[in-house]
Amino acid sequence: MAVIDPIHQFEIRPIVPIRIGDLDLSFTNSSLFMFLTVAVITGFLVMATSGRGLVPGRLQSVAEMGYEFVANMLRSSAGSEGMKFFPLVFSLFTFVLVANLFGLYPYWFTVTSHIIVTFALAMLVILTVVIYGFMRHGFGFLKLFVPAGVPMALIPLVTLIEVVSFLSRPISLSVRLFANMLAGHITLKVFAGFVTMLGAAGVLGAFGAVLPLAMTVALTALELLVGFLQAYVFAVLTCMYLNDAIHPGH
């Protein structure tokens, strides 16, 4: 019986080692699964929309539901002006969702369980917000940090707090997704580990193993929910931050 190490699943292994100077640009299992995620999303959408039926088939209606879901989310939090960011939000949502769901498949790598990946996604969002905000409103974007109706004397303090609060957004956005996936997968692995440990401990243990097995089944269902929920939360918060870029402090 192999030693059960709940962290082992997050290990990054190079598949095709590539070194350029001092940079390690190896093609790893993480890169492989990112490629797979993108390939599956693209493949699915291309396949689903290839028919272009007026009355959608099964695949096409799934794709349309996905579109409607993200479009409604974006419209309700950032207004119809936010629709120009639809490609970004839709890509982020589907990428995170499919990566999370891939991670549930045994032996498959969970891309979103690495903070560097989720942080890169969060920085993409925040940089889009900042760059678009400045492009669109110039220095008017900074009004975002000056809440209305605050006494003059308090404005410097409140503005500093708002700035720190704004800067903490990418951190909370990335940490939330990463920690949920990491914690979920570790819990799943630990309970699954109990099954094999108890199973190896004789007849009585084999009966006792039913309990952690049931727990593993329940946790898998929960992880499915969490995977979807986290993708949704990520997308919703992206929409809200984009709303800040489009309408900073009216």
Partner: peptide
């Protein structure tokens, strides 16, 4: 609860 916790800690960490 988890969401609130991350929000809080993120603020402190950035500060």
């Amino acid at each position: 609860a988890f969401r609130l916790a991350t929000e809080f800690i993120a603020g402190i960490l950035v500060g």
